[in-house]
Simulated scan of single mutants.
Amino acid sequence: MYMEIVASVEGVPGMLPSPDMLHPTLSRLGITPETLVVAYDATGGLDAARFLWTLACMGHEKFVTLDGGLGAWYQEQRPMDGEAPKEAPGMFSSSPTGRYYAEMEDVRAIADGEAEGFLIDTRSDNEYLGQTLGPVRGHVAGAVHMDWISNLKGPQNPYIQDDESLKARFAAIGLSDTATPVTVYCHTAHRAAHTWLLLRHLGFDNVKLYDGSMAEWGMRRQPTVRGAEPR
Rank of each mutant, 00 (worst) to 15 (best):
L198Y: 01
L198Q: 09
L199W: 00
R200H: 02
R200F: 04
H201Y: 07
H201Q: 13
H201G: 06
H201K: 06
H201I: 13
L202C: 01
L202I: 03
L202H: 05
G203K: 09
G203L: 04
G203M: 04
G203Y: 05
G203A: 05
G203H: 06
F204S: 00
F204R: 00
F204D: 01
D205M: 08
D205V: 11
D205R: 11
D205N: 15
N206V: 10
N206P: 07
N206S: 08
N206Y: 10
V207Q: 01
V207W: 04
V207M: 01
V207N: 00
K208F: 00
K208M: 01
L209A: 03
L209E: 07
L209F: 11
L209R: 03
D211V: 08
D211A: 04
D211Q: 04
D211H: 05
D211W: 07
D211Y: 01
G212T: 02
G212V: 06
G212K: 15
G212N: 11
G212F: 06
S213M: 04
S213L: 02
S213H: 02
S213K: 02
S213G: 09
M214K: 00
M214D: 06
A215G: 07
A215E: 03
A215W: 00
E216Q: 11
E216G: 12
W217G: 08
G218H: 11
M219F: 12
M219G: 09
R220H: 11
R220I: 12
R220L: 13
R220V: 14
R220E: 14
R221N: 15
R221G: 15
P223K: 12
P223A: 08
P223W: 08
V225R: 10
V225Q: 13
V225I: 15
R226Y: 15
R226A: 12
R226N: 14
R226W: 12
G227T: 06
A228R: 11
A228G: 07
E229G: 12
E229L: 14
